[in-house]
Each structure stands twice: as C-alpha cells, then as structure tokens.
Nucleic acid binder design. Structure first.
Length: 272
DNA sequence: ACCCAGGCCTGGA
DNA sequence: TCCAGGCATGGG
C-alpha cells in the first residue's frame, strides 16, 4: 500500500542512527525487521512510499511505528521561519526523518551495544545477536524470505558471557545480560517507563549497568518515544561546540528537542 | 602505528 | 563534583 507524506524519507530514516535493522536491498528499496515482522519499503518520490503490507497491518502496526499521526512539517516550518541558520539547513536537509516508535527492549540492548562503536559495527553486532538468539521466521508474502526477529528478554537473560564474546560484543557482554535480566525479572518495566515522564525514565534506566546519560536519553527518545529527550553523543557535542560555541539553548525547543537533535545529528554527519 | 566510534565505570583529586 | 585512564573491537 502507499503512504503519502511530505515528511517521510526512508533513506534518511535508515541513515539517521536511530534504527539498525533497516537496509537498502536495491535502489530506493529498503528491508526492515521490527516487531517480529519483515517489511519492504520503497521510496516512490519525495512525497510517497510503498509499504509491503496490507492496509490492516498498516493500521495495526506501521502507522504508529512511523509516527504518521505527528506533524513533522510543523517543526520544519518553524525552523524555516526562525533565525537559526544551522537548523534551517539541517531541517531542510533531513526533513524526511521521523522518530520511529521502536520496541523498547530492542532499543535498550541496541544502544548499550552502541557505546564506543560506529554505526556499521553496531549493526553487525545486532545481526549477530538476532542470528544467535532470535526466532527464525519466514515471510510468506516475500517469496518465503527467512529472517531472525530480535531476541526476547528471556533469551538474552540466559545468554552466556562467552557466547556474547564470540559475537564480538567486547566488554558489553555483561551489560547486555544484566539489562535483559532486569527486564525479564520485571525489576524494570519498559512499558511503564513509557507512561511516566522522560526524566523518571532516564533515572530508572541509568540504574542498569552500562546505561549512562547518553544511552538513557537514546532509549527514552527512540524506545519510549519521549521526544523531549536530547541525547548528546560525539556528533552533537561537535555541533554544540563548533556551531554554537557551547551556547545552544535547548529550552527553545522544549517538548520536541529530540526531533531537533535528530536533524542536527544527520546534517552534521553529512558535512564530513 | 595511531585514532576514532551515537560511552560508561572506577578511582583519585 | 570533575577528570584520566581503561575497557573490546573493527576500520580508517
């Protein structure tokens, strides 16, 4: 089925560093594994994508996943009318980005892995985990394409350190197991954190070893959809230092700073 | 060989 | 409270 929007660009989303299982499989066509499903997305033009699922499945899952009820154009227009030159360029450059509503547990583990790694390396590690611990599935709708879902908390909670080391996760092995156990044993309830405030969520997430301020903000933004989160990584740090001389005022964008952060990140990386 | 990657933890000022 | 060094691994 076709989705029309002035603010949806699959390539930009796939390259925006918020999701790690979206890949280009042929020109302008991307695969995606999420919520235990396999999907293909084709960019038709600047204002439309084709999504390989029924209208029913779209309404049930993907409309929400791509955050299609939110008006990103309103944010872009606000930036265009403002006087922040960098954000004008960044907004124009990344106006097809949206903040996905991804599975909280997958995001928790993915961003624990992300520390001190580049994006290609993060992707490799996540695929390794899925291949080793995820459920193997077959998509009848895609010529019986086989794929692995992201593993459940229970499967990862019972993983062995040595196994994870084989997957080249390095010192993150223990972090991953501890995090999965916290979820599996119910000490941390991610759905509950979705319902409470961003600040409370970050505080709770930081009790998990291997989750510091940056990773907690990423989980809050990408996994819990607290779009006021503002994760500061090396790239955003570069923006804050070099572009704003450490005088950027996040408060101007209160309530949706995470979207602004995403435009900054995507644009700054394009400059190198 | 060195440096960096969507950082975090620990120990010592 | 702030900072330095260490931490696994792969790629430039």
């Amino acid at each position: 089925m076709i989705i029309e929007s002035n603010n949806i660009n699959i390539r930009q989303i796939a390259e925006s560093g918020q999701c790690f299982r979206m890949n280009e499989i042929k020109q302008d066509t991307f695969s995606l594994i999420a919520y235990g499903r396999y999907l293909q997305l084709k960019q038709l033009d600047d204002t439309a994508i084709e999504i390989s699922c029924s209208g029913e499945e779209y309404e049930l899952i993907w409309k929400d996943y791509f955050d299609l009820s939110y008006d990103y154009n309103r944010i872009i227009q606000k930036l265009m009318k403002g006087k922040d030159d960098f954000l004008k360029k960044a907004g124009d450059y990344g106006k097809g980005i949206r903040i996905l509503r991804q599975e909280p547990f997958e995001i928790l583990i993915s961003f624990i892995i992300s520390q001190n790694k580049n994006i290609p390396s993060i992707k490799k590690c996540i695929e390794g985990i899925c291949n080793r611990y995820g459920e193997f599935k077959i998509s009848e709708e895609h010529y019986k394409m086989g794929y692995y879902a992201f593993p459940t908390p229970g499967r990862l909670a019972n993983a062995k350190k040595e196994e994870l080391r084989e997957l080249k996760l390095g010192y993150r092995d223990e972090y991953i197991i501890k995090a999965a156990q916290a979820i599996h044993e119910g000490r941390i309830n991610l759905d509950q954190l979705k319902a409470c405030s961003h600040e409370e969520a970050v505080t709770a997430l930081k009790t998990i070893p291997g989750v510091g301020d940056k990773v907690a903000n990423c989980i809050s933004l990408y996994g819990l959809h607290h779009i006021e989160a503002f994760p500061v990584d090396v790239w955003i740090n570069k923006v804050l230092n070099e572009v704003y001389q450490n005088s950027f005022d996040v408060e101007q964008y209160q309530g949706y700073a995470g979207i602004i952060q995403q435009y900054m990140f995507y644009y700054m990386r394009s400059l190198k």
